[in-house]
């Protein structure tokens, strides 16, 4: 679906934020970009719906190179939605309804069609009772949902989210993750996430890219990547807590644990039960 070829981006102050990145992902994938602050995640994702232009290299969306005239950008942005990290940047209208309606109105739909899309999007994110409220009435988690609804109302095929879980409480994080997984499953929406929340990644992503200083240093499934603990530490990240526990149990206590560490609670449970059975024998 997306193909990036030797993409580089240099900011006007001279910082090389993206350094020769090539990658591609398919329709319906759930992809996470993991990296520390300043590793280039946001800059990379900003290229995918035309917010930033590459300094060099090419981006293809469905085999066509991105064009940057107003009409092509509108078509691209209808198909590729971007949810920003700080919902206060994104929610600018005076009410939830007006904000969610902004995208569809820009696409030139009729008022009735827009109302339909707004309602549908707000039902999906569970915010329909706040339709007439102004954004400053909402909590952080609620704002994030409305920001997501604003993108959903444009019926995108790809949703890009920058730090979807930052500054949310645990319940709000788990709600938004479930919502994203549901969108991916039911509507086949391709999801691209930038995050530094390592514990969230295995719950969400099928494919993981590790970014460091503007370069992709590793790619693969969360399982293969997190079993390489040295690499993770080298780029100043850490493994998920559960993987770390199993790594210590294996290396310090010599327990016969599989090479790919469990990353989630359910995987850990399986591994523990397997271990108990082998020791019983």
């Amino acid at each position: 679906m997306f193909k990036l070829e030797n993409l580089s981006h240099r900011y006007s102050d001279g910082t090389l934020a993206i350094d020769n990145v090539s990658l591609n992902f398919a329709r319906g994938e759930r992809v996470a970009f993991l990296g520390t602050n300043g590793s280039g995640k946001t800059t990379l994702l900003n290229h995918l719906n035309g917010i930033l232009k590459p300094t060099s290299g090419n981006i293809y969306f469905e085999d066509k190179p991105l064009a940057y005239d107003a009409k092509s950008l509108l078509t691209l942005r209808k198909r590729v939605g971007f949810v920003f990290q700080d919902p206060n940047d994104q929610l600018f209208a005076s009410s939830v309804k007006q904000d969610v309606a902004f995208g569809p109105l820009n696409l030139g739909y009729t008022a009735d069609r827009v109302k339909e899309l707004v309602n549908e999007a707000l039902v999906t994110v569970g915010m329909s009772e706040y339709v007439d409220k102004p954004p400053h009435f909402l909590s952080g988690g609620q704002k994030k949902r409305v920001a997501l609804a604003g993108v959903l109302a444009m019926q995108p095929e790809v949703i890009i989210m920058d730090e979807p879980t930052s500054s949310l409480d645990p319940i709000a994080i788990s709600d938004i993750l479930h919502l994203l997984l549901q969108l991916n499953k039911e509507k086949g929406i391709t999801l691209l996430l930038a995050t530094h929340d390592v514990d969230m990644v295995p719950l969400f992503a099928e494919k993981l890219y590790i970014l460091n200083k503007g370069k992709v240093v590793s790619e693969g499934t969360p399982k293969t990547i997190f079993s390489n603990a040295e690499l993770i530490r080298k780029v100043n990240l850490r493994s998920p807590r559960i993987a770390h526990l199993f790594e210590v149990l294996k290396k310090e206590n010599g327990l016969p644990i599989a090479d790919e560490y469990p990353l989630t609670i359910s995987e850990a449970r399986k591994e523990i039960l397997r271990l108990l059975k082998t020791t019983e024998k």
Partner: peptide
Amino acid sequence: RTLVAMNARGY
């Protein structure tokens, strides 16, 4: 930042 976010939704 708001302008960027508005552009991203086809402003």
